[in-house]
Lab assay of single mutants.
Amino acid sequence: MGFKLLSKLLVYLTASIMAIASPLAFSVDSSGEYPTVSEIPVGEVRLYQIADGVWSHIATQSFDGAVYPSNGLIVRDGDELLLIDTAWGAKNTAALLAEIEKQIGLPVTRAVSTHFHDDRVGGVDVLRAAGVATYASPSTRRLAEVEGNEIPTHSLEGLSSSGDAVRFGPVELFYPGAAHSTDNLIVYVPSASVLYGGCAIYELSRTSAGNVADADLAEWPTSIERIQQHYPEAQFVIPGHGLPGGLDLLKHTTNVVKAHTNRSVVE
Results as ranks from 00 to 15, higher is better:
Val237Ser: 02
Ser7Met: 10
His154Cys: 05
Asn184Gln: 00
Val112Trp: 03
Ala192Val: 12
Asp85Phe: 00
Asp119Trp: 01
Asp118Glu: 09
Ala178Glu: 08
Ala129Cys: 00
Val42Tyr: 07
Ala111Arg: 03
Ile238Gln: 02
Asp183Asn: 07
Asn262Phe: 09
Glu219His: 08
Gly158Val: 04
Leu106Tyr: 09
Ser264Met: 10
Val67Gln: 15
Ser162Asp: 11
Asn211Trp: 11
Gln103Leu: 14
Cys199Leu: 03
Gly245Trp: 02
Ser70Val: 03
Tyr34Asn: 07
Ser38Glu: 11
Asp216Tyr: 07
Glu39Asn: 12
Arg120Gly: 04
Phe116Cys: 05
Met18Tyr: 15
Ala130Val: 10
Gly169His: 06
Trp55Ala: 02
Phe168Asp: 01
Leu185Met: 06
Tyr188Ser: 02
Ala98Arg: 14
Val42Cys: 07
Ala51Phe: 06
Arg120Trp: 01
Leu247Ile: 15
Ile227Gln: 05
Phe3Tyr: 10
Ser160Tyr: 10
Thr60Gln: 08
Leu83His: 00
Gly123Ser: 04
Gly210Ser: 05
Pro244Lys: 03
Asp183Leu: 01
Leu185Gly: 02
Asp216Asn: 12
Asp119Gln: 01
Gly2Cys: 09
Ala133Ile: 13
His241Gln: 03
His154Glu: 12
Glu150His: 04
Ala51Pro: 05
Ser31Glu: 09
Ala51Tyr: 09
Glu172Asn: 03
Ile224Val: 11
Ile151Ala: 07
Glu203Arg: 03
Ala218Tyr: 14
Glu150Asn: 07
Ser31Met: 10
Asp77Ala: 06
Leu73Pro: 05
Lys4Tyr: 09
Glu225Trp: 11
Thr182Leu: 14
Asp64Ser: 13
Val266Gln: 14
Leu185Tyr: 02
Val112Phe: 05
Phe3Pro: 06
Ala200Thr: 07
Glu99Leu: 14
Asn262Trp: 09
Thr140Glu: 04
Ala111Val: 05
Pro35Asp: 07
Ala215Arg: 06
Ile186Cys: 03
Lys4Cys: 07
Gly72Ser: 03
Gln61Asp: 05
Ala133Lys: 15
Glu219Val: 07
Lys251Thr: 14
Glu233Asn: 13
Glu157Trp: 12
Leu24Lys: 12
Ile58His: 12
Val265Asn: 10
Ala234Tyr: 03
Leu204Asp: 09
Arg263Thr: 14
Asp248Tyr: 08
Val194Asn: 03
Gln61Thr: 08
Gln228Met: 14
Ser160Asp: 14
Gly177Cys: 04
Thr222Lys: 12
Ser208Met: 12
Gly158Tyr: 05
Tyr231Phe: 11
Val108Ser: 00
Ala15Gln: 10
Leu106Arg: 09
Glu267Gln: 11
Ser162Val: 10
Gln49Gly: 11
Leu127Asp: 02
Lys102Phe: 05
Arg263Asn: 15
Asp183Val: 02
Lys251Gly: 13
Arg120Thr: 02
Ala213Arg: 11
Pro239Arg: 02
His260Val: 11
Gly210His: 04
Ala129Thr: 10
Ile40Arg: 06
Ala21Leu: 12
His230Val: 10
Leu106Ile: 11
Ala90Leu: 06
